[in-house]
């Protein structure tokens, strides 16, 4: 298995404005969105990145698409380092890697008709105009918006959330990319249309053999879409493995809490209280050692002293926890 996307010790810090005291003391406070993430994504794999708000999962997605630059570390796509891309090579990369947005109501230019929005990537990629209509029609059929005539001359505000998300997906697919990042693709949609969009994402991935990264806070969704899951906590990867394995047998205490938090359809079923409490700590001042230790029910002395490394436990399953060592 060759990796299509590869991240090596990727770090992303966002500098925050300094107070006078911090300037005097020469400190550079930063939000540490990602701290040393290494990840390989094989061609045609579907990987889920899960974690709560602020854990760095969206930053991870943006880094993989070169929408932001890492503070340290390297990202390669198909063997080419993203850091060195510019001009023609960057445009070539843009044709291959696309993004589906969280909020479809904001992802389309309000002044562009649906046709223009979906044809935009073709225009940017320099595809002759004569082919545009054909390819747009094809993309629309792929996302099951077949009655083109009804949509093409409309503006985004005239469509529903579910329709818009299909348009956003059509725009992402119109260039037939190899790599797709979907950042919380259904979290802004009505529950009633989520299933349709999820089924569509799955179908599109299978049909086109896409390498896909789904960013989500919802393990239940991920289970449906991805064979592999990466669990993140406060800018670090805490667990990585086959989705089925992670759901059935979570190793990291945080993953256990995530699995326990998945809603069950039976309201009467007794549920154990969540094993963790509190909120994610401030990403400017993460705890020493293991970042999860202040919320972890099993924390012991070593957790404060040493950050656990990601270690392989079973076949393809990696966990960053001192308990597992």
């Amino acid at each position: 298995m060759s990796a299509l996307v590869e991240l090596r010790d990727v770090v992303k810090h966002f500098p925050v404005s300094r107070s006078l005291g911090e300037i005097v003391r020469g400190r550079h406070p930063a939000v540490r969105a990602l701290d040393g993430v290494s990840l390989e994504i094989g061609a045609s794999d579907a990987v889920a990145v899960v974690g709560e708000s602020g854990c760095g999962k969206t930053t991870l997605g943006r880094l993989m698409l070169k929408l932001t630059e890492p503070s340290a570390g390297a990202i390669t796509f198909d063997g080419t380092a993203l850091g060195g891309l510019s001009g023609a090579s960057l445009r070539a990369f843009r044709r291959q890697a696309q993004l589906v947005f969280q909020n479809p109501f904001d992802a389309l230019n309000p002044r562009f008709t649906i046709y223009r929005a979906v044809a935009e990537p073709l225009l940017n990629a320099g595809i002759p105009r004569a082919e545009h209509a054909d390819r747009v029609a094809q993309a629309f059929r792929r996302v099951h918006l077949p009655d083109l005539e009804r949509y093409l001359d409309r503006y985004p505000h005239q469509l529903s959330g579910g329709q818009l998300q299909r348009v956003v997906l059509a725009r992402a697919l119109v260039l037939a990319p190899r790599f797709l990042v979907a950042d919380e693709p259904v979290s802004m949609l009505d529950v009633s249309v989520r299933a349709g969009i999820l089924a569509l994402l799955r179908e599109v991935r299978d049909d086109m053999g896409l390498t896909a990264v789904y960013i989500s806070h919802d393990l239940a969704l991920v289970r449906y879409l991805c064979e592999r899951t990466v669990v993140m906590y406060l800018g670090t990867m805490v667990e990585d493995g086959p989705t089925a394995e992670i759901v059935r047998n979570p190793r990291h205490p945080y993953t256990r809490a995530l699995v326990a938090a998945v809603p069950v359809p039976d309201a009467d079923q007794a549920r154990a209280p969540l094993p963790i409490a509190g909120n994610v700590p401030d990403a400017r001042e993460p705890p020493s050692g293991c970042r999860f230790r202040d919320r972890c029910p099993h924390a012991f002395a070593r957790c404060a002293e040493e950050a656990p490394a990601l270690r392989e436990t079973a076949d393809g399953h990696r966990v960053a926890c001192h308990l597992d060592n």
């Binding site: 698409l65 929408l67 960057l90 445009r91 843009r94 044709r95 890697a97 696309q98 993004l99 947005f101 969280q102 909020n103 904001d106 992802a107 389309l108 230019n109 309000p110 935009e120 990537p121 940017n124 990629a125 956003v168 725009r171 260039l175």
Partner: peptide, 16 residues
């Protein structure tokens, strides 16, 4: 706004 980011992802030039 996301649609400006979308324009970047789809390869639009800075000027565009």
């Amino acid at each position: 706004r996301s649609y400006v980011e979308a324009a970047r992802v789809t390869g639009a030039s800075q000027a565009r």
